[in-house]
């Protein structure tokens, strides 16, 4: 039962993280390799805010989201004027800078040792120590986030993002400011990633640079692609699937240091398989005029 609750909390956090990634990659065809950086920043803001300061729950969540969003504006300013290949490079570089800063600014982030002892959030003096009560909070927040994201997906903004991925010039000819649109998408996507990070920090009570690595990025990529890029419900399904499927590995009789790499292997094999099988339909070529 405890284990089930743990999985549910994890799934909820990943739902927010993956759906926000779905906005930029799935709808907008923007491969933002720094999405996990947004997640990390959110986690660290909450970590620092609640350990050194005395941030309340909502302050922490808003601060985390906002900081991630703000930094994404910086990234967007540089990366969004670049074409696909260079865009991927730019976001990758940004992600690495964030990583390097987290490791090196020891005074603030405690370097590779990470920040521990992050307290559970308090709602009106009631501390959510119990995992089930924490689950209620996370579930409620996730529900609200997903509802907002759903509205974005099915409304004009989602439509325009989709169109941009398909035929950029045609969308420009219809009077849409694509740069502004992408910047907004970035901001929203990163803010949600920061929010997910905040929840992560509150749940695990410990953050360190290694939890936000390259392999997290590949997991998110796998989730979005397996769930069909741009599909809201597909992404929900694939998140649940991909977060849960490596779990049986825990119960096998293998040394604990192998569990991580095996989970990674399983997820990346699924990714490559799905990409290969769908290569004709996935990310159909954008048309240039």
């Amino acid at each position: 039962m405890e284990y089930g609750i743990h999985l549910c909390i994890l799934v909820c956090i990943y739902l927010i993280l993956a759906q926000s990634f779905n906005i930029t990659l799935g709808l907008g065809r923007l491969l933002n390799l720094a999405h996990v950086a947004g997640y990390a920043i959110g986690a660290y803001v909450t970590a620092i805010g609640t350990t050194t300061g005395d941030m309340g729950l909502f302050t922490a969540i808003i601060a985390s989201s906002f900081t991630s969003g703000l930094l994404s504006l910086l990234l967007g300013g540089i990366a969004l004027r670049l074409s696909d290949d260079y865009f991927a490079i730019g976001t990758l570089a940004f992600s690495s800078i964030v990583s390097a800063l987290l490791i090196n600014c020891k005074g603030v982030t405690n370097g590779v040792l990470g920040i521990s002892g992050i307290p559970r959030p308090k709602i009106a003096d009631f501390e959510l120590l119990n995992n089930s009560s924490f689950l209620f909070l996370v579930f409620a927040i996730t529900f609200v986030c997903l509802a907002i994201i759903y509205i974005l997906f099915s409304g004009p903004f989602g439509r325009a993002l989709r169109a941009q991925g398909e035929n950029r010039s045609a969308l420009l000819a219809l009077g849409r400011d694509i740069r502004l649109m992408n910047t907004t998408a970035f901001f929203i996507s990163s803010s949600f990633a920061g929010l997910a990070g905040s929840l992560y920090a509150y749940y695990i009570n410990y953050v360190d640079p290694s939890s936000f690595s390259f392999s997290e990025m590949t997991l998110l990529l796998t989730i979005v692609i397996v769930g069909s890029p741009g599909s809201f419900w597909g992404c929900i399904g694939s998140t649940i699937f991909l977060v849960c499927i490596p779990e049986p590995l825990r119960f096998l009789d293998i040394p604990s240091y192998l569990v991580g790499p095996m989970r990674q292997l399983l997820q990346s094999v699924i990714l490559v398989l799905v990409v290969w099988l769908n290569r004709n339909r996935l990310f159909s070529l954008t048309r240039e005029v």
Partner: peptide, 19 residues
């Protein structure tokens, strides 16, 4: 095809090799 495909595929390949 779209250049996103080899980007994603090689990222997957990298993770497979690392694991």
């Amino acid at each position: 095809r779209s250049i996103l495909l080899p980007l994603v595929s090689t990222l997957g390949c990298a993770t497979i090799l690392e694991s």
